[in-house]
Design a protein around this nucleic acid. Structure first.
Lengths: 338, 338
DNA sequence: CTGAAAGCGCTTACAG
DNA sequence: CTGAAAGCGCTTACAG
């Protein structure tokens, strides 16, 4: 059963290809009777229009592409879910590509998406991306672009983000309210904006509460992994640093730290409290459960797709698109680790 | 900078569209000099051929589609990663759809993929799927199909699976070797084959070691969630059932059980040992870490794509495709919970 | 070695 | 209300 075409239907019903096409798309200038005949027959033979041929005329592929830095990652999976489910409602199909945090891969993948004529690209910038020309390329091509999570201040497009600085501030304030004064920070790599902002929020909270910032209490997690969290915690214990709380840039390093503290029979949160960031599913499953900042990935994904739709329609009306930065609310989730 | 076409290049260089097309595709009947001129110019203006127009002629979309039951799921994410990264090497792009374990959604999504003319479909069947006509549709359409993980014995296509029965058997045998005799099983829903097979492996292991099967020790996890695992464990404690080990159909229920046991101050593994299945990242991060069966998702994904390529080429040569069931090796990972 | 022409399967402005 | 015709951007059999 090869795929049928309009021509086949036209031949079978003894009418023209034009009329078949119009009937299927509910044009007003086709008689109800003809429409019924055509639709019934199309249904019967299970006809699906060839999207490639349609594209050549409409120049809409009804296709979008997502490029994320990591695939096996709770937060990004949540965003995917948000974008994909929203896209489906609007009959868009979604290509997924993963840059593995590499600048070179990100560049190639964007090029590929463009050559597939996607209508929109959704991007979270890789940690290693140091140049933005390939992103500018998307705009030059006339393709819609929405950036989420890992953004840059320099890209001319809309973005869906959280207020990392404010969220980190509230996390650290929460620790201070619990009576903690010697708060270590496991920060992310130096380049991405959100790693910088979380660090700045941490610093600001200390300052506002008359706690002196001590750079010896800041550790870098380049991979944002559990093992880095484990090692830094071990380091703190080995050096006998005076620390009564840890605020990690993400849940994974926080969980690594908890694992290390448990192995060393440190009481959590009495001796050392631990605070994560992102609210991965895992953070509620470990013992003690992890206090963290909830970052609503699915919501961010849905919002990203809606922004894409709006900008697409604005363009269609030949009106100028005004790029915006949409900030999604986060919330503090208190559990047993603080 | 709108997308250029062959026509534009032809006009710019004052030659025909035919020659441009041939030059770019390295046809032997174009002079070296012309080829050079064309390629150089195409490079300069960053020309990318319109894949939609090409499709109309070649009938290859260089596109595949994946339908999985869950998106925010460590094991399926690993498979995705395997398929996508292999696909990328061969210049295929990947559509991702998620059935959310729903039969109706799965049906619609397969239809959508077919209408996008994908060259291949990769499917893991939803738990709720009770009819396979929509899957037969794929074959009738002439589209290649590879099934992984959640398969059915009734689909005429190749599949990439593990030997669930054998793996479950080895898990239970491991518990028996540790001296456990009253082993509960938290099984999956009734329909999917792998949930059945893991249950059968459990039963077989008991039998082979002269332990009487007790149906009161079997609990169903319909959602395969941590909370079900928690509740079943609580149930065991409340009923004061004589149980010294739990073998769960997946890591999540096992982790729920551990959480419950810890809250009730039960010693793991001394009083009750816990065994999971799948080796999600989380299973090494909790305390005590979870013993489990490693199911190599990424490998399964890669294999799935390779099988697709082979079958595609076989078809191109007009030879008959022989469907096969590929079984990927699993291994037991012993940690602190057993 | 080069190019005019047909055709892939649609959509739509236009004529009747 | 219906349909002939042009065209989207490619590829390729064919003629010269």
């Amino acid at each position: 059963m090869k795929n049928l075409t309009l021509k086949d239907i036209a031949a079978a019903l003894n009418i023209s290809v034009t009329t078949v096409s119009k009937a299927l798309k509910n044009y007003p200038d086709v008689s109800v009777k003809t429409k019924e005949r055509v639709k019934e027959y199309a249904e019967k033979v299970n006809f699906t229009p060839n999207s490639f041929a349609a594209y050549l005329r409409t120049h809409e592929s009804k296709t979008i592409g997502i490029v994320i830095p990591r695939l096996n990652h709770y937060f990004f999976s949540s965003i995917l879910r948000g974008i994909i489910s929203e896209a489906e409602k609007h009959e868009y199909m979604t290509f997924i590509l993963c840059s593995e945090e590499s600048y070179e891969l990100e560049k190639v993948q964007i090029q590929r998406l463009l050559s597939k004529n996607v209508d929109g690209i959704f991007l979270s910038i890789a940690d290693k991306t140091h140049d933005l020309a390939h992103i500018q390329n998307i705009m030059d091509n006339g393709t819609n672009l929405v950036i989420f999570d890992k953004y840059s201040k320099l890209t001319p497009c809309s973005s869906i983000v959280i207020d990392d600085r404010k969220a980190a501030y509230s996390a650290v304030k929460h620790l201070i309210n619990k009576g903690k004064k010697r708060i270590a920070h496991f920060r992310g790599p130096l380049l991405p904006q959100n790693s910088i902002d979380r660090f700045l929020g941490y610093k600001q909270a200390l300052e506002d509460h008359d706690i002196k910032y001590d750079k010896n209490l800041v550790f870098i997690c380049d991979e944002i992994s559990d093992s880095e969290g484990f090692d830094h915690a071990q380091n703190i214990l080995d050096q006998k640093l005076d620390v009564d709380a840890i605020f990690a840039v993400a849940d994974l390093p926080a969980i690594g730290a908890i694992k290390c503290l448990l192995e060393n029979h440190i009481e959590i949160p009495n001796q050392i409290a631990v605070m994560g960031f992102s609210n991965w599913m895992i953070s509620s499953l470990i013992t003690p459960s992890l206090s963290t900042i909830d970052q609503p990935g699915e919501l961010m994904g849905r919002k990203a797709f809606k922004v894409f739709l709006e900008e697409r329609d604005t363009k269609k009306r030949n009106e100028p698109v005004v790029f915006q930065k949409y900030e999604i609310e986060t919330s503090l989730v208190e559990r047993k680790s603080t």
